[in-house]
């Protein structure tokens, strides 16, 4: 089938502002959108610029706006988006070139939530693993799946509007540790969240949850963090 892609282009070395360019590509319905971008880059326009690596939705490189919603280009099959596709860079982060946005502020927010296990207690004397029940492990399973593609954070109206809001992805990472039974840093982390308006700015628009390519229940996770801040309890 023939597919028309309308892509928002911007090259800071040449363009004052962004403009759309249109490409036409022959494709199989089962092709990934990423395959088509590669085809365009390979045969029509080498200057088209985007990030990608794994090509199957696990590395988080190629989040972009596809027909208006945030998705990974490698996870979108042509048969599911039709023959006319509009592609734009993520919103809320500075566009560096074409579909590449500046990820630094995003990763900076991630770093703020102390994303590492905090546990100063002695390790088991036999040197083996800490014991964690299956139920305790299941408690935070969902938020371990995050690949930091930024699809959620850049779909969030509160993030677009506020420089001091950490955004859903950072909160997902906070959740992953706060609810890990082995972690002892919950209060430190929750403090960061209250100082940075971490959770308060979330108005449960649910955009993040529908944008997540890993189907993480983000709004729920943020809700659980809010609850923990209010009650001081983790369950």
């Amino acid at each position: 089938m023939n597919v028309t892609l309308k892509i928002l282009r911007y090259n800071p070395e040449k363009d004052e502002k962004g403009h759309y360019e249109t490409y036409s590509v022959e494709a199989e319905p089962t092709d990934r959108l990423l395959d088509l971008l590669e085809e365009i880059k390979g045969h029509q326009d080498g200057t088209l610029t985007f990030r990608r690596s794994c090509a199957h939705g696990v590395c988080g490189s190629d989040a972009m706006r596809i027909n208006g919603s945030n998705k990974l280009a490698c996870q979108v099959l042509i048969k599911n988006v039709g023959a006319k596709i509009t592609i734009e860079p993520l919103l809320g982060l500075k566009v560096v070139k074409d579909l590449i946005v500046d990820m630094e502020p995003f990763f900076d927010n991630y770093k703020k939530v102390l994303p590492h296990l905090i546990n100063e207690s002695a390790l088991p004397a036999d040197g083996k693993e800490r014991i964690q029940s299956q139920k305790e492990r299941a408690r935070f399973d969902d938020t371990t799946k995050c690949i930091m593609c930024a699809a959620c954070t850049t779909s969030c109206p509160s993030f677009w509007g506020n420089d001091d809001f950490l955004g859903p992805a950072a909160l997902v990472s906070a959740h992953r540790f706060v609810f890990d039974s082995r972690d002892e840093g919950a209060s430190e982390r929750l403090e960061v969240l209250s100082e940075t308006f971490g959770v308060a700015r979330c108005h449960t628009a649910f955009n993040c949850t529908s944008a997540c390519p890993r189907d993480i229940k983000i709004t729920q996770a943020i809700g659980e963090l809010k609850m923990a801040m209010v009650t001081g309890k983790l369950d």
Partner: peptide
């Protein structure tokens, strides 16, 4: 063996056995 325990100590969320081991 030590390498895997070290990863667990670093915080790696391994799945668990019914006894809570890796």
């Amino acid at each position: 063996i030590q390498a895997v325990y070290e990863l667990e100590h670093m915080g790696l969320p391994f799945d668990r056995t019914p006894e809570g081991r890796i």
